[in-house]
Nucleic acid binder design. Structure first.
Lengths: 347, 347
DNA sequence: CTGAAAGCGCTTACAG
DNA sequence: CTGAAAGCGCTTACAG
């Protein structure tokens, strides 16, 4: 049994295929009464427009692409992407757009995927994630003339549309809070170097520490994985002048850091305060619950999707600033234990 | 500048469009020398076949669909799906198949999505996740005649292909291990009731406990979320005869349970042993690291993808048993603390 | 407001 | 082994 086409509808309605097309797409060219008749028939016989035929006739593919360059195991534990994707999805499916997903190994493969998708007319636009400083994907996408929304910035996005958040403001709020609690020895465990938002945060951290006159602060690079977060934390907590507060660039590393503190017999928050960047439900599943920088990731994804659809529709390219993450204090931060007075033997 | 088509290649090569098509697709009908010439030209001018045109000519869509019915926040913290997807992806992209992803609210919407995708010829097949007992999606997909691989089973999959793992064997291994350690009061915190694998595990747990003569065991239903896992754990640990060992149906609940134990001043594993089902990297990021039921989820996804491609190719429908999860003992399990001898007043 | 027709870029019998 | 042609199911000017 063949699936119904507009020809079937046209035959049943006694009109031309063109009329059916106009009726189905809400175009002028048919009277309201025939439009209703046509729609009723379409519904009755379970008609779905063949997306290939539609795409071939110059219309859009009604799909957008998302290529992710992260190893499988990392992707799984990082709640960020699934939340982002679900926000993107909500917006896309409301407009009957499909999301095509691909996990890639490196930048060159990623660019090749974009080129192929676009060449095959499989998609109408793409999201660019994990923006890096001087990202080679940006000029490649510009050259392809492929509608794109960069999830990241500001800057380094060329002529592409972008959506970004103020990393600096969030970091300043966090550091000022820790300083207000009495912390001086604050270390930040940074995300993957080279990623734009990592670099922005690193610079902002250096800057705010200088402004506040803190001279025992620093950023230690890491890579967002729990394993590496644990390793770095173990090293930091083993040092002579160990920090009293740690800021982690994501929640997975923060959770790993908390476990290391427990493993080393340190009490959180009495001996060590911990702040997590990104506030997935994980932060509230550990004990003590983690103070975190929260923001609505699904909403971020939805905004990105809306801007990509606008870019596809030909709207002018813009850069959009999303909500700034705000500090949500929980049980992992407190004033540092007062330094014990020097023992006689130490004098 | 228009994107190149086979007509452009045909003109440059001085052959017909048909010849180009044969050459590109490795079909007989062109000599080896012209095939090479055509391929060289295609490469040179950066040709990509228009997937819409290809699909319209009766070929396949070269895409498969995956609809996920879980709330955004749950999806984000559950590492299982991202790992599954990355395994699926690896297999699909090796064969130039795209993955179309959609997050849906309920079963009816999900079925509607399948119907639309299939009607629009957007996909050649789908994965069915989170199989339930007497799942209404199964007959719907059978009726659509849409190539499907059910991720779950055995049973309840109708005439659809499926891939499943032996939940019972894994559960038996776990219970026997805990009993060998000396545990008698074992409680299992189950996943969402109604999901087939939840029900299979529940029945298997009852069965093995009966066989081993354990009469202080039970399953408490939950929903896979950390919040609910924490709530249930708090209640269990507050009861008079609290269990000495807990088996959680996923790792997120296990981690939440561990935090609750810590919050209530219980020592893991001395006062309480914990086993997590599914061994994502999260299990090793907490302290103590969790004993877990491990299996290779990306491999599971890859197998599922391979079977879906086979089903699309028209291979006979089969049910495939994947690797059984195996117990990976870590720091969260130990013999229970010996019960203190009854105090005189209790006699 | 409606109908007839061309065309999107492929694939695939069908002749030579 | 190769070429000319029909056809997939839509959309969209172009006539009436």
């Amino acid at each position: 049994m063949k699936r119904p086409t507009i020809a079937d509808i046209a035959r049943q309605a006694g009109v031309s295929k063109g009329a059916v097309s106009y009726a189905l797409n809400g175009q002028p060219g048919v009277s309201e009464s025939t439009r209703q008749r046509i729609l009723a028939i379409a519904r009755e016989i379970g008609f779905n427009p063949n997306s290939a035929a539609r795409a071939l006739s110059g219309a859009t593919a009604n799909a957008v692409g998302l290529a992710l360059r992260r190893p499988a195991r990392t992707l799984g534990v990082e709640p960020f992407f699934m939340e982002l994707i679900s926000g993107v999805e909500a917006e896309l499916s409301a407009r009957s757009y499909a999301l095509t997903l691909q996990i890639v190994a490196d930048a060159q493969t990623e660019i090749a995927v974009y080129r192929r998708w676009w060449g095959e007319r499989r998609i109408d636009g793409v999201f660019l994630c994990d923006l890096r400083v001087d990202d080679e994907r940006v000029p490649a996408l510009e050259e392809l003339n492929l509608p794109t929304v960069v999830i990241g910035g500001p800057g380094h996005t060329g002529r592409l549309a972008s959506i970004w958040a103020d990393e600096e403001a969030a970091l300043v709020e966090t550091v000022e809070y820790l300083v207000a609690l009495g912390h001086r020895r604050i270390t930040r465990i940074g995300g993957l170097p080279g990623l734009l938002h990592t670099e922005i945060r690193t610079e902002a951290f250096t800057e705010v520490c200088r402004r506040l006159g803190l001279d025992q602060t620093r950023t230690v690079p890491s890579d967002y994985t729990g394993e590496e977060g644990a390793r770095v934390t173990r090293r930091l907590l083993s040092s002579a002048e160990r920090p009293t507060a740690l800021i982690y660039d994501n929640d997975v590393m923060a959770i790993a850091g908390l476990a290391v503190a427990q493993e080393m017999g340190l009490s959180v928050p009495a001996d060590l305060s911990i702040v997590a960047w990104d506030d997935s439900p994980l932060c509230q599943l550990v004990h003590p619950p983690l103070t975190a920088l929260s923001r609505d990731i699904p909403a971020y994804g939805a905004h990105a999707a809306r801007r990509l659809l606008a870019a596809i529709a030909g709207d002018p390219i813009t850069s959009y600033q999303d909500e700034t993450a705000h500090l949500t204090p929980r049980g992992s931060t407190a004033p540092p234990r007062p330094t014990p007075p020097p023992t006689p033997s130490a004098i």
